[in-house]
Amino acid sequence: MNLLVIEDDDSIAKLIASGLRDYGHDATTAATGETALARLRDHRFDAVVLDRMLPGMDGIDVLRHIRRGVGNPPVLVLSAMGETDHRIEGIEAGADDYLVKPFDMMELNARLNAIVRRANRTNHVDRIEIGSIGINIAQHKVFRRGRPLHLNRKEFGLLIELMQHCDRTVTRRMLLERVWGYTFEPGTTIIESNMSRLRAKLTQDGEADPIETVRGSGYVLHRDRA
């Protein structure tokens, strides 16, 4: 992916850019909102990583300009401010995702993949089929090899998230936000415990486990194991 990183702190900008290159992306940096808008006029970017606090033109203002401009790439806002008010302000200004500092590169990469994929997905899907797993979102039904599985709401939500981002890492923080809607991080194994129930149900008849735990950060659902 071709990414634009708007961050005024030079060392953080370099760390983010090099981290994203490690994941195989092209990353360009811009230290101010004005430079960033100029780069956006001249080049096409798949997504933008935007620091909220910028000198001069504020991150939220930059976001509003991006939303009015051509191309209109998906934007992930980075912020040191985690309070709900700030989060809401960012989302309302048109951010596709909001990530509170500090974060790790795996998290940033997973979220960028997710927002780009979501931006490219044109129509709303009601059914997803990956390998032997079929899911009907509207009817809340899941099948493996044509046999129905009884998942509760959380297990169902986890499976949808993993299938929508299949072959990509979905982080714990993303799952907490999307499946639970929590802005806080519980201290216990809420994700792990629920995930283990989902995996048990997916493999109850001796099928292969399509889900892999990515150490320290999240989970991947592999198409070839599904």
Binding site: R153, W180, T189, I190, S193, N194, S196, R197
Partner: peptide
């Protein structure tokens, strides 16, 4: 400022569903 009218019982059911595996583990 952002308080909403919510059903405490439904919220409790939701959390119980999420926490049941944690407590079992």
């Amino acid at each position: 400022a952002g308080l909403k009218l919510i059903a405490l019982d439904a919220l409790v059911e939701d959390v119980v569903e999420s926490m049941e595996p944690v407590i079992e583990d």
